[in-house]
Design a protein around this nucleic acid. Structure first.
Lengths: 151, 151
DNA sequence: CCTTGATCCTGTAGTTGCTACAGATCCTAT
DNA sequence: ATAGGATCTGTAGCAACTACAGGATCAAGG
């Protein structure tokens, strides 16, 4: 590998934010909650980041984009950091998360069906009679009322 | 209307919770944030509820079940409370919420596709090589990284 | 009538995943 | 040297609840 355009290894927090697209404050937050390591500091206490921090933050952000919770990401990172992770372990965590995602989709589709079906019966006129209000007032809004996983 | 089995109109907070399935504390919370009206009190300050409160709380809970935000529910309730609402107004709010729900579904389906497609390539063995880690490390996790509406 | 235990009251803290602000310090360029 | 940006810290705020502590009150049994 040439060093023709190596990533500068003396990044300020604002540089890291710019390179990753992460919010400036969120970087500090991830540090506080243990998703990012404590970076080295200059004599006056300013954080200095390098290429590994860029990678780590990208990892965290991609995991968040995929809907992993911070707890799950901590789990993934500790697997990787341990240095002896296996694909099986990672896959297990991924599958669990996939189950959660699919459950959310199902819940939202139930909501969509009720909403769409109800609104389709709306007249859109000035009458106070409204199927949606009827559902909210009397109907069983969503067949299984268990928890609100879908939010 | 007979009073053979009219809903008792002298309900304690615990009764309202039991009748609706709502958490006891949540009732007070809804009162604080204006989703439930301040109920009458006994001389010693205990809340007393009646049938209208049961209906109102059921309305709020069904709306929450359908994923309406508290802000939206406040809007729906103020329409209804105003006494001069129209189906068109309610429908408009419902349609807007339906759009939000559908956007969430789409976002989650993108996540599902990436996750499922990636995990399908997992070997499930003891190797550290893992497609999911590859996606998190290098991939563009979810094509459009805009906001996280789907949570 | 009195006690005991259940219920009720209030305010407040915790949850998740950030985001934003205030006030102090520091860095950089002129 | 100084002005104005950037950084530092702690903390508060968002949604939508849930739970707890400490005190007051109610209801039933003795």
């Amino acid at each position: 590998m040439s060093d023709s355009h190596a990533i500068a290894s003396d990044l300020k927090r604002s540089d890291l934010a710019r390179l990753t697209g992460c919010n400036l404050e969120t970087i500090r937050y991830y540090e506080n909650v243990g998703l990012m390591p404590d970076p080295p500091r200059t004599a006056s206490g300013h954080r200095r980041y390098g290429a590994p921090h860029v990678e780590r933050l990208n990892f965290v952000m991609r995991a968040r984009d995929l809907g992993f919770t911070m707890e799950e990401i901590r789990g993934l990172l500790s697997l990787v950091d341990r240095g002896s992770h296996t694909c099986a372990e990672v896959e297990r965590m991924g599958r669990h998360h996939l189950d959660v995602v699919r459950a959310k989709i199902r819940d939202l589709q139930m909501i969509e069906a009720v909403l769409a079906g109800t609104i389709a019966r709306c007249t859109g006129t000035d009458t106070p009679d409204c199927p949606l209000l009827d559902v909210l007032s009397e109907g069983q809004a969503v067949p299984e009322r268990v928890a609100r996983t879908s939010e």
